[in-house]
């Protein structure tokens, strides 16, 4: 190991240079992204505030008794089978299907519920350590490295989008780390989105030909989601709270 003694310094310098380069990339990123909105970002580019990811849920297309989105999320992110000790009310649910009925008219709907990726997320406001945060591209995440498991975000979330892990987990997936004593929720499949892919739930919904979920960049006028949102009505849940959610619903 002593023959490598000299190379340590040089590699440290390399490392720092690279770190500096990525910081530089962040600075020039807006221009880059504006000129090429449709391209997937390269792995060394930071995410940009010129995009805001969102999902439009068309509940009119949402089939009864269909849980393709839930199954796909479980498979992609590795939840739903890993908690063997937890009671059902303790098990994590990143996305769930809910059947609702209008109290006055009896009109019934099935729809998926998950993190609504608010622009002003209450979970981020209340998190004491800043573990709960909103990425510049609008995805709300938990930095599990500094989450202390206080669960205050779960108290604050109006959508009950978050789950606490009540037991030790094993065999997590490399791209979806999760573990005991921390809080988690829908990540909008950030590992796929960063790679230019779409979230697993959206993929599964269109694979089943329901096409109830549209994913895309809310800031890009030409994206399918923006055109759909402009074309017909949609609502955000608990709009009274003024959170400006990234997930919007049609047909409610």
């Amino acid at each position: 190991m002593s023959e490598n003694g000299k190379s340590m310094d040089s590699s440290r310098r390399d490392f720092l240079t690279r770190a500096g380069a990525s910081a530089g990339a962040a600075a020039i990123a807006p221009g880059v992204f504006l000129s090429a909105p449709a391209a997937a970002k390269s792995p060394d580019q930071p995410v940009s505030g010129d995009k805001r990811w969102g999902i439009l849920v068309d509940t009119n297309k949402c089939a009864d008794n269909c849980d393709a989105c839930v199954s796909a999320c479980k498979e992609e992110n590795g939840w739903g089978h890993s908690e063997t000790h937890s009671r059902p009310d303790q098990q994590a649910q990143w996305i769930r299907t809910v059947e609702i009925r209008n109290k006055a008219t009896g009109f019934a709907k099935t729809l998926p519920m998950m993190c609504q990726h608010c622009e002003n997320p209450p979970c981020v406001d209340v998190c004491p350590t800043g573990a709960s945060f909103r990425r510049t591209d609008g995805i709300v995440l938990v930095d599990k490295h500094i989450c202390i498991g206080c669960r205050y975000c779960m108290m604050a979330c109006p959508y009950k989008a978050r789950s606490f892990i009540h037991e030790e987990l094993h065999d997590q997936l490399p791209w979806a780390p999760r573990g005991k004593g921390t809080v988690e929720s829908c990540t909008l499949c950030v590992q796929l989105v960063d790679n230019g892919d779409i979230p697993a739930c959206v993929e599964a919904c269109s694979a089943d030909n329901h096409n109830a979920l549209v994913f895309g960049d809310l800031y890009d006028e030409n994206s399918e989601i923006s055109r759909e949102l402009k074309k017909a009505e949609s609502v955000e849940l608990r709009a009274d709270l003024g959170l400006n959610t990234g997930v919007r619903y049609r047909g409610l």
Partner: peptide
Amino acid sequence: DLGRPDRLIVAMTYYNFKSIFA
């Protein structure tokens, strides 16, 4: 009662000043 009581030091070193809990 914290999920990660071993990270008490995190609670003392990382502050989100918008959080009333912090």
